[in-house]
Design a protein around this nucleic acid. Sequence first.
RNA 1: CGGGGCGUGGCGCAAUGGCGGCGCACGUGCUUUGGGAGCACGAGGUUGUGGGUUCAAAUCCCACCGCCCCGACCA
Length: 585
Amino acid sequence: MRLSDLFFATLRDDPADAEMPSHRLLLRAGYVRPLGSGLYSLLPLGFRVNRRVEQVIREEMDAIGCQEMEMPVVHPAEVWKASGRYFKIGPELARFKDRGDRDMVIAMTHEEVVAILLSELVQSYRQLPVQLYHFQTKFRDEPRARGGLIRVREFVMKDAYSCDRDQAGLDASYEKYRGAYVRIFERLGLDAIMVRSDVGIMGGTGAHEFMVINDFGEDTLVLCDACGYADNQQIAEVQKPSPEAEALQAMEEVATPDTTTIDALAAFLDIPRSKTAKATFFVAGDGRFVVAIVRGDYDVNETKLTNAIKAVGGLRPAQLDEIKARGMEAGYGSPLGATDSLVVVDELVTRSPNLVAGANRVGWHVRNVNVPRDYEPDIVADITSAREGDACITCGSPVKLRKGIEVGNIFKLGTDFTVAAGAEYLDENGDRHPIVMGSYGIGLGRNVACIVEAHHDEKGIAWPEEVAPYPAHLVAIGGNKDPQVVETAERLYAIAAAAGPDREILYDDREESPGVKFTDAELLGMPWILTVSPRSLAAGGVEVTHRATGERSVRSIDEVTAFLEGREPFEASAAAIASAATAGG
RNA sequence: CGGGGCGUGGCGCAAUGGCGGCGCACGUGCUUUGGGAGCACGAGGUUGUGGGUUCAAAUCCCACCGCCCCGACCA
């Protein structure tokens, strides 16, 4: 592709409202353009990267026997009503009516359709297991798009579905996908780590997320360097301290003006936060009012709380009047005297004697509150979030917290969808069973952004060869002084073109100054920059620069030809890679 | 949905009540080709939309729309 023909434009200035490096660079280098919030066009360069990422995923899916197909983006609403998700999912699911006034949805994912296909096509255990996948557009009307391609509303996802006759089959399929995902992210140049994740209210028997550590990430990961433990903070467990035994003291009210926060309370009474009990108030989707009690030095983990009370529809923070109506006072709250509430107490609180808790009266707390002496919990469970430095649940070493971006997930769904769709098979004995499903997703655009996050410097992008839109970027300098430059560059370009579509290169044939061409080449980020100039010709050929390391050498026309034809790849020296790794952090 | 910020040419920005500008990018011509070149000429705007105040509004007021950031949310 000649740059004089390419549909793109590089921006000299950073776009004002692009905060993430990947977003800034993809905009500046002319890979993507926004159309609206969370809606992006992929320009030709961006589309080529997307396609190469897609191809890596396709190869690894095919390698585990997963069959590519395609399912519709628009579904009749009945499909989603049958699974129940039409009613469970809020405005995130886009709905509309077709010309016949029929309810329709724009698909967020495709479990329902797979289950329907299974119900139509699978009758015997002999047809199982089967693995299916497609690359298809999803629409999720997210409350807030952010981070360029990281969180968008419309995106292409590879979603795969395993279909097995039983749990053991699902476990085996799940393992295959786990292995495929490890290979995919390695090929994409991403350091993805697998963490256990919440299965949510969709049930299922297990799920993992593949995460890339990134400060702009939306999830928090709990990691242990010592033993390799890695969980999403939503579900991560840590070892909690064993408070020293104390004689239980009598409760005693104490005036504590202006102490609506734990910090203020602890400071006012001159006690550690660990000697206080914190109350937070929620309303579950089914209407139950929930008081969650954790020690003052911990935070409530809403995912754990949701799972502890099996809250269908999740939790929302309670309103002040809802709290008051149940005899409690926000800022000075506790279950003491509370009515009509589900009291959920963190297990550490039950082991921590003589805590200061709210008196449910503005400006007052109560000393020496003990569970279950002073109030009776409805549920005792681990409902706190892991903290930086807490003791690892498996080895006791201090854990660390890191932000992460989810680049893929694997999920043991179970039979919810197949039961709803009537997707059953007959076993060897003629008995009928629901098919057991798993689902496995990878968002393409998000992966493209994460690759840029991991492979860029202050000058621009540095694509790994596996996903680069073109293998090389040819720059001709001084062509007006020396016709041999243009002649040589044109010849090399033609050689690459003749070597097949995969070997096509970018050729900067524009009448621009050398500075512009070099700057753009570094911004666009092809793995190898080939410079033809009077200087390079005098030195014996073409100057070859490795974009990622900056390593530079002059290669003969024959060597470059062998590279362009795909016969002899260029390799960066180990030393250059090591020094680039050190410099890049 | 709550909080904050922003909306002026393709991009980045200035103009705070009185003739809408600057840099880059863009077009034409000449010069220039190893690190975002120079000169000359030129094109490009209903200042997000609607309403209001005023002799006069990009500027002040109201409403709406859109975008970004934080939070809520995230099968």
